[in-house]
Amino acid sequence: MIEKTTWSIWHWLLGAWMLVVVYGAFFYAPTAQGFVGESARIVFFHVPQAWVAVLAFCVNLWASLRYLARRDPLDDARAAAAARLGLVFCVLATLTGSLFAKVMWGEFWNWDPRQISIVILLLVYAAYFALREAVADEERRGGLAAAYAALAFVTMPFLVFVVPRIYFSLHPDTLINVRGEIDMDGRMLQVLLAALVGFTGVFIWLYTLEVRVARVLMARRRREENV
């Protein structure tokens, strides 16, 4: 009961926090210089979505390695849940990035190295689910999917950091650029950091829900097997 109340309070706090983030993104943060109109405000949604996607893939790796070490089916469910959410946030980051590209450069898709990188990342984790579908045996599925997840994860730094720097990119400098400096107005930075915290909270909430559903389904299956 206490746990339920605590969760309920957290959800309300998260909702309030996200409302503040949305308000801050449109009314508190100033208009950025060097961008068309108000297009730069998308940074408060696009960057946290990309961050959460990377975080989700990190959680996927953690759960996969845990599964390989302990062979607990719940760890496999955790890995799948994280990868699923990672894919969702990856799609959202791609869509918001495309909107920004349309406003800034006139086209939704410019074959920019960062756009290509994120699409490859989507394909890599979509393949993770194709592999899961192709293996019927649960334990073998968990093991193979975990191995693939680890292999997929090692390519991620190359997609996120190496490939976009080999080719010329239209993409604005990342938050922490090659000079190691943050080129952002103080109030914009405050809203961006708040958005990063808020989106991380949304991820934790959705991830917890997915894991709870998986736990319930597993318990039901165990009961059915015992009957």
């Binding site: 890599v124 192709a134 293996v135 390519t155």
Partner: peptide
Amino acid sequence: RAAGSGTLFAILAVPLMLPL
């Protein structure tokens, strides 16, 4: 170790090798 290995190889390997 999975079913439909022929098609699955391309699905898994191509995205992993694209950055390369």
